[in-house]
Simulated assay, not measured.
Amino acid sequence: MRFVLGSASPARLGVLRAAGIDPSVVVSGVDEDAVAATLTDPSPAELVTALAAAKAEAVTREVLATHGDAVVVGCDSMLSIGGAMVGKPGSPEVARERWAAMAGRTGELLTGHAVVRLTDGRRDGLATGSHATTVRFAEPSPDELDAYLATGEPLGVAGAFTLDGFGGWFVEGIDGDPSSVIGISLPLTRKLLAEVGVSVIDLWR
């Protein structure tokens, strides 16, 4: 059985490989804003779970013909800070604004996951869920923040920070699952795999 990761995130891929799984990667290409626009006043957990499910479904349509027995995993992460849900900043200016709001405060990193099981080339199960982890941010100096933004790292990650890269210098602690903050929650993924009848140990390489 193949494990198909519906994400281009190198951090998610790294977490899985370090945990014994060598997934196939198929990028979903889902328009996240369009998916979010179809939802009526979703909670943060509902939003990230719906986005993860949309990605898993898009990838499932791609791999049905080539992966007879597989699990497809879609993920989405956003940061809740000051009552606002934020994703990837995309530009240094937006990332700087995010850090102005985050520095010295706490935020909640929400990750939604969706697992689709394929058996003999057909859909055979779906499980979805989310996980929230509290992140305690440090206060980088102006020079530190300039240098961090110059790395480019915060521009393409949810909340404009990482735990496992340059951003780790500016995270004072977390309350929850560290793998979820990096991008894919191993405990939640294990639980969702079990819900569709797959044991994670059978996927270890």
Rank of each mutant, 00 (worst) to 15 (best):
R2T: 14
F3D: 04
V4N: 05
L5C: 13
G6W: 11
P10T: 10
A18L: 13
D22F: 08
V25T: 13
V26Y: 03
S28P: 01
V30D: 00
D33H: 05
L39F: 11
D41R: 13
P42E: 04
S43C: 05
A45E: 12
E46M: 06
E46P: 01
A54V: 04
K55T: 02
A56H: 06
E57H: 07
E57A: 15
A58Y: 06
A58L: 01
V59W: 04
V59N: 03
E62Q: 12
A65I: 07
T66R: 15
G68T: 07
C75F: 03
D76M: 08
D76K: 07
L79W: 03
A84E: 15
M85Q: 12
K88Q: 02
S91A: 15
S91K: 13
V94Q: 15
A95Q: 01
R96I: 07
E97I: 08
E97M: 07
R98W: 11
R98C: 03
W99N: 02
A100I: 00
A101H: 08
M102C: 12
G104W: 11
L109D: 11
G112D: 08
H113W: 00
R117M: 09
D120I: 05
D120R: 13
G125H: 08
G129V: 06
T133L: 11
T133K: 06
V135N: 01
R136Q: 15
A138F: 02
E144H: 05
L145H: 02
Y148C: 10
Y148A: 13
A150H: 05
G152V: 12
P154T: 10
P154N: 13
L155S: 07
V157K: 13
V157I: 14
F161K: 10
F161S: 08
F161P: 02
T162G: 07
F166P: 09
W169T: 14
V171L: 13
E172Y: 03
G173C: 14
D177R: 05
I182S: 04
G183M: 07
L186Y: 09
P187K: 06
P187S: 10
L188A: 11
T189I: 13
R190C: 11
L192M: 08
A194L: 09
I201F: 14
D202V: 09
W204L: 15
